[in-house]
Structure formats: structure tokens, C-alpha cells
């Protein structure tokens, strides 16, 4: 089947994608269905399309990132957009320019889409309020990373066929993880059961308020799970501040075959990367192609980002048509 010329009839009425919070199951399904079609198309030669021809995408990264930035860059290029990468971490900010000033400056260059990563929670939303283009949150502080959650969901769908009714254990540094928040929101919205697993310093009991089960024991936490999703543990947090040492962490919370035995026999192992082998995940498990979906996640990443760009570009076109016709945009604000 060819990639879609038009988007299905479900409306995705937003200018931006700032988070999973507030999205309905239908809207999420729309993005996942579209990703599925791009996944197939991406496996064939002749990947480049004209969907975003003449559009400019700026990847604005206030934090260093290789895989997410590359994934967005590839997605935009495959849709025919012109892409510019800006690594702001080492330019304007050091000169004292505020985020709002940066936003206003970039806005004057009339980009169509800004893909933004920032180390502070809420910063992408703040920036989105000061620009006229579509904004995609590529990760803000410990808040959200919506395209990661979408690609994780798409990976699960591809491997298990569904999201509803499955049990997913998210393990590791939940407290500081934007990936975890977006995944919890998406998976619970889609009807999956979610458990969060880790020591209380990294998995506070407050997580119960998000409608998930909190576990501080790895074997019990992943027992009978369909999916075990590992999170990266930042090195600076494993030298005594949150956990005493990497050795101790791996002993009790690192995913190896012994612990994985508690999950369902065909349970899927996921990791958003980059992995700390021997800290949160054992190399044997990470490299087990039968269990590990880590490569599939990377593949889905490009397709999911193409789907998001496609939908937001369609909205951009609709808004620009409405403005050309003298009507105000009838578009919802950011999600």
C-alpha cells in the first residue's frame, strides 16, 4: 500500500504537539495508523515525498541529542521539507539571550515547524506561545517527550498487535523521566495497565496519582508483564545521590535474564536509548533480537515523526488557507 495522500477523517485539531496530555484515544490512533503506513513506505526505495515541499523545519535543540535530532531530520527530509539544525546549547544562550528572545528571533524567519528540545520543563510551551508556526516538543525537562511515547506505542502495536489490555512495566528513573510521563499518559489513555518500578528515590509513591501501580521490587513489578520498558539512568544520579552505586543498582533493578523470567515468556524489552549496558540493562538482554524491540523503536521513530509532521502541516495549510480567505483560524490551541 502506498503512503497516504490524505489523512483519515479523525480530526487532530492542534497547531502544536506539546505533549500526550489531553490527546484522545482517537487522536493517538490517528497518528499511529498514519505512522504504520509511513513505516511500510520507509522500507521501500524512493522514500522522498512532496508533502512538505517548500516548508522549513528548524530543529532547535537546547540540549545535545543525536538520535532524536537525526530522527526528526530524516522524517522532515523524507517529507520533502528543508531542514535546519540549531544547537543552541552552545551559542545564544551563553550570550545571555532569553528563550523568549530566541523564539521571537526565529519566528521572524518564518519557519513552518519548530522541533524543540529544552532542559527545562514547560520551556517548549513557553516558546510556542511566542511563535506563529507549529511546534513539536522533542523533550522538555522532566515533563514530556510525546514523539518518544508515540514511537514506543507504535513499536508495541507492531509487535503485539494491540495496546488495550496489555500490562507494561516502566522501570528505572521515573522521577526525572519525560519519556516515562508521556508513556504513562499514552498507555493509560489507550487502555493499557501500567506499572512503574524502581527504588523510592527514583519512583516516588506520588506516581499512583497518575493511575499506575508503584513497585519497588523488580521481580514483582515485572511479573506477568507484556512489555518491560527500561529507562536510562543518568550517570550523575547513580553516585550516591539517588542510588548508591551502579553496581548496587544493577544488582536490584538492572534487567537481566534472571529478572526477566518473571515477565511473560514472550515479553517485549524496550529502551529509549542510549543504553547504559550493565547499569539498567544487561547486554545479553539488550542484544536478544527475539525479545528486544530496541531496533524497532528506532525504526518507528522516523515514521511516527513523519506522521506528526504530516498532520501538523495539514493543519498549517488549513490555517493559512483560512487566513488567505480572510477568516480567522478555527484551530484549537496547543494540546
Amino acid at each position: 500500500m502506498a503512503a497516504p495522500a490524505t489523512v483519515p477523517s479523525v480530526v487532530f485539531p492542534y497547531r502544536d504537539l506539546l505533549g500526550i496530555e489531553g490527546l484522545t484515544p482517537e487522536e493517538i490512533t490517528l497518528l499511529l495508523d498514519l505512522s504504520e503506513r509511513y513505516t511500510e513506505a520507509n522500507r521501500r526505495p524512493g522514500k522522498k515525498r512532496k508533502t512538505m515541499r517548500g516548508r522549513t523545519v528548524i530543529n532547535l535543540f537546547f540540549e545535545t541529542s543525536t538520535r532524536t535530532r537525526t530522527s526528526f531530520e530524516l522524517a522532515a527530509q523524507r517529507l520533502g521539507a528543508d531542514v535546519i539544525n540549531m544547537q543552541v546549547a552552545d551559542s545564544s544562550i551563553k550570550k545571555g539571550e532569553t528563550l523568549v528572545d530566541t523564539a521571537v528571533t526565529l519566528n521572524a524567519m518564518h519557519p513552518d515547524v519548530l522541533v524543540v528540545r529544552h532542559p527545562e520543563s514547560g520551556a517548549v510551551k513557553l516558546l510556542s506561545e511566542k511563535v506563529d508556526c507549529a511546534v513539536i516538543n522533542a523533550g522538555d525537562g522532566s515533563h514530556e517527550h510525546p514523539t518518544q511515547a508515540l514511537l514506543d506505542a507504535q513499536t508495541i502495536r507492531a509487535r503485539l498487535g494491540r495496546l488495550s489490555g496489555i500490562t507494561v512495566a516502566i522501570c528505572g528513573d521515573l522521577a526525572h523521566s519525560r519519556v516515562a510521563r508521556s508513556n504513562i499518559l499514552l498507555l493509560t489513555t489507550m487502555g493499557a495497565r501500567v506499572r512503574v518500578v524502581g527504588p523510592p528515590t527514583l519512583v516516588p509513591a506520588t506516581f499512583e496519582r497518575l493511575g499506575v501501580e508503584v513497585h519497588h521490587n523488580m521481580e514483582r513489578g515485572i511479573a506477568d508483564c507484556d512489555v518491560v520498558m527500561m529507562l536510562r539512568l543518568q550517570t550523575e544520579r547513580m553516585q550516591g545521590s539517588y542510588v548508591p552505586s551502579t553496581r548496587e543498582y544493577f544488582r536490584f533493578f538492572g534487567l537481566d535474564y534472571a529478572k526477566l523470567g518473571a515477565a511473560k515468556p514472550d515479553a517485549l524489552v524496550m529502551h529509549p536509548g542510549p543504553m547504559n549496558r550493565g547499569v539498567e540493562i544487561d547486554s545479553e538482554v539488550a542484544d536478544d533480537f527475539g525479545r528486544s524491540a530496541i531496533q524497532t523503536q528506532v525504526e518507528m521513530g522516523v515514521a511516527v515523526r513523519m506522521a506528526v509532521l504530516k498532520v501538523l502541516t495539514r493543519n498549517l495549510e488549513a490555517r493559512q488557507r483560512a487566513q488567505a480567505n480572510g477568516n480567522g483560524a478555527v484551530m484549537g490551541e496547543a494540546s
Binding site: E21, S121, G122, D140, G141, S142, H143, E144, R178, R181, P204, T206, F207, R209, L210
Partner: peptide, 9 residues
């Protein structure tokens, strides 16, 4: 609390 958790603050 919950609000801080949701906002990632």
C-alpha cells in the same frame, strides 16, 4: 505532589 509530578517540576 501530583501537580509537580505531572508538570515534571
Amino acid at each position: 505532589g501530583e501537580v509537580a509530578l505531572r508538570l515534571g517540576l
